[in-house]
Amino acid sequence: MSEIVDEISRVHREVGTRRVGADEAGSVLLRRTFDSDAADVWGAVSSPERIARWFLPVTGEFRTGGRYQLEGNAGGEIIECVAPERLRVSWRFGPDPGFSEVEVRLTPEGGGRTVFELEHVSVVPEEFRSQYGPGAVGIGWDLALLGLGWHLTGGGLSPEDAVEWQSSPEAKAFVARSGEEWGRAFAASGADPETVTATTVATIAFYTGE
């Protein structure tokens, strides 16, 4: 279990805000270094066949201006695709998702390593944001990066095993640690301490069912 939970410490997290038109959008940023070259990491995040192995099955037109759909999850437009450096997509889930974009950035590092950044910027209803905070999005992306890391090292779980794993004590420990780290990132952004505590508790409970 310790190796899974230790994956949390390999990710740098930031919480911020920005203006999107007349609205204020929240942002979460995750950054970690993978022991794989940029071409391999790019293939993992841009190839439909490989995305299905660590995230979810995906269909669509895989080109700039094309549309994609993750099975049972988000879909949207491929806004920008600059191989092997940058991928930006709209990220729409539900009947009225509002503004939501995800950008992945890759920077080669020495020794065949790659710095991976994922930033998700979205406008969410105030009642949801005040109840759950940025961890609601951040924990989901931490889980995704865990799967990506497994995939890049040749490990990981089958889709069936991954579903079962999500209810395991190991997964709940991972989620709890992730939620606590997003709480720290939220506090570092200047959020009120009481809000940080309340949203962190609510988000961890939402993911773990406890």
Rank of each mutant, 00 (worst) to 15 (best):
residue 100 S to C: 12
residue 123 V to K: 04
residue 162 A to T: 09
residue 110 G to A: 15
residue 146 L to P: 01
residue 157 L to Q: 13
residue 147 G to A: 06
residue 141 W to N: 09
residue 102 V to N: 10
residue 118 L to H: 04
residue 157 L to M: 15
residue 144 A to D: 01
residue 125 P to D: 13
residue 125 P to K: 03
residue 124 V to D: 09
residue 134 P to I: 02
residue 145 L to K: 04
residue 153 T to G: 15
residue 144 A to Q: 11
residue 156 G to T: 07
residue 155 G to C: 11
residue 159 P to E: 06
residue 94 G to D: 08
residue 154 G to C: 13
residue 144 A to I: 12
residue 134 P to Y: 03
residue 96 D to K: 15
residue 133 G to M: 10
residue 161 D to Y: 01
residue 154 G to K: 05
residue 117 E to M: 05
residue 154 G to P: 03
residue 151 H to F: 15
residue 130 S to E: 09
residue 141 W to I: 09
residue 119 E to C: 11
residue 115 V to K: 03
residue 85 E to F: 06
residue 112 G to P: 01
residue 144 A to H: 14
residue 151 H to E: 14
residue 152 L to Q: 06
residue 130 S to V: 03
residue 91 W to V: 08
residue 135 G to I: 04
residue 135 G to M: 03
residue 107 T to L: 09
residue 163 V to T: 08
residue 103 E to G: 02
residue 87 L to P: 04
residue 121 V to I: 15
residue 142 D to W: 00
residue 110 G to V: 01
residue 157 L to T: 07
residue 160 E to H: 07
residue 118 L to P: 11
residue 112 G to E: 10
residue 162 A to L: 12
residue 161 D to N: 12
residue 155 G to P: 05
residue 140 G to T: 08
residue 103 E to A: 07
residue 87 L to V: 13
residue 97 P to Q: 07
residue 150 W to V: 06
residue 89 V to R: 04
residue 118 L to A: 04
residue 95 P to L: 01
residue 89 V to Y: 05
residue 127 E to Q: 15
residue 134 P to N: 06
residue 119 E to P: 00
residue 104 V to I: 15
residue 161 D to G: 05
residue 87 L to D: 00
residue 102 V to I: 14
residue 106 L to S: 04
residue 159 P to N: 11
residue 157 L to N: 10
residue 162 A to D: 11
residue 143 L to R: 02
residue 108 P to N: 05
residue 136 A to V: 02
residue 118 L to V: 13
residue 100 S to Y: 00
residue 133 G to L: 07
residue 158 S to G: 12
residue 107 T to I: 13
residue 136 A to W: 03
residue 131 Q to M: 11
residue 85 E to Y: 00
residue 135 G to R: 01
residue 138 G to Y: 01
residue 128 F to M: 10
residue 89 V to H: 05
residue 150 W to M: 12
residue 98 G to C: 12
residue 95 P to M: 04
residue 108 P to A: 09
residue 115 V to A: 08
